[in-house]
């Protein structure tokens, strides 16, 4: 099957007031890719995501989503988005896990319509995909950070997106749960053929399941296959990251096996 790019950025730059936040970004993500977008804090990752999500307009360059210009792209429900947990939601909010997940269908159902006929089944199914079905009737505020993050992924999955974008999804999750969290992402990518973009500042999270890596710091310093990324030297990484980093995760992985 010919792989069509789901996201295609060409020479995208973004200026905020007088600062260049992003410069000449060209990036494409194809169907089935699992791209890790790496960059230190302040490298413009969130800005780039906002451009992809249509929340910001690039100062220069073009954005194409599913082959269509970003400005006229109508099918936002094809893109699932999981933000940093701490950002936007109020943990005392009185809603059950089921209600939160169902809210992921809002755009898909459309204005002036109430619900889908098979809504309940869809909600339970996506909760199963993230292993949270036993919490369906609990209030969201009663769950741990990691569990909440799984619920937010279920909220993104319920609309059956073709592309899932995760912004630093493991921030605030205890160390032990991070691995099982990545296993779940791998499963979604491999079994459900979902295209993924994982945004992180943590080089260590680049695990074996990732197919492509893009390194961002104002501009793209590296974009290619995971294997090529692995052969980068620590010196090269340090140069774009701005301080010393080492890819220690591979040793860990091998030890685990």
């Amino acid at each position: 099957m010919a792989q069509k790019p789901l996201i295609e950025l060409q020479d995208v730059s973004f200026q905020y007031e007088y600062t260049n936040v992003l410069r000449d970004i060209s990036l494409s993500v194809r169907e089935g890719d699992f791209l890790a977008l790496l960059g230190p804090n302040g490298s413009g990752k969130s800005t780039l995501l906002k451009i992809i999500l249509g929340l910001l307009k690039p100062t220069k360059g073009t954005v194409k989503l599913f082959g269509e210009p970003g400005s006229t792209f109508k099918h936002r429900e094809w893109i699932g988005y999981v933000s940093q947990k701490s950002n936007s939601f109020n943990s005392g909010f009185p809603a059950t896990v089921k209600e939160v997940v169902a809210s992921g269908l809002t755009k898909k159902i459309g204005l002036f319509k109430r619900r889908l006929p098979d809504q309940q089944a869809k909600v339970i199914e996506s909760l199963k995909a993230v292993g949270m079905e036993q919490f369906a009737n609990r209030n969201i505020g009663e769950l741990s950070g990691g569990q909440q993050q799984r619920v937010f992924i279920a909220r993104a999955l319920v609309a059956e997106p073709k592309l899932l974008i995760l912004d630093e999804p493991t921030v605030g999750i205890d160390h032990e749960n991070v691995q099982s969290f990545y296993d779940m992402l791998t499963d979604l990518n491999e079994r459900h053929h979902m295209t993924m973009i994982l945004v992180t500042h943590d080089v260590d999270t680049v695990s074996d399941t990732i197919s492509h890596v893009a390194c961002l710091n104002q501009t793209i310093h590296f974009h290619g296959f995971k294997d090529d990324y692995d052969s980068l030297s620590d010196d090269q990484l340090n140069a774009w990251y701005g301080h010393a980093v080492r890819k220690i995760h591979h040793d860990n992985k091998e030890k685990q096996k």
Binding site: R76, S83, A95, G104
Partner: peptide, 21 residues
């Protein structure tokens, strides 16, 4: 009419905007 939109907007405004509501 707007129950589900109001719910999303109340629960998570950023998400509401990101999903194009």
């Amino acid at each position: 009419i707007f129950y589900k939109e109001l719910f999303v907007l109340s629960f998570d405004e950023d998400y509401a905007k990101a999903s194009g509501l």
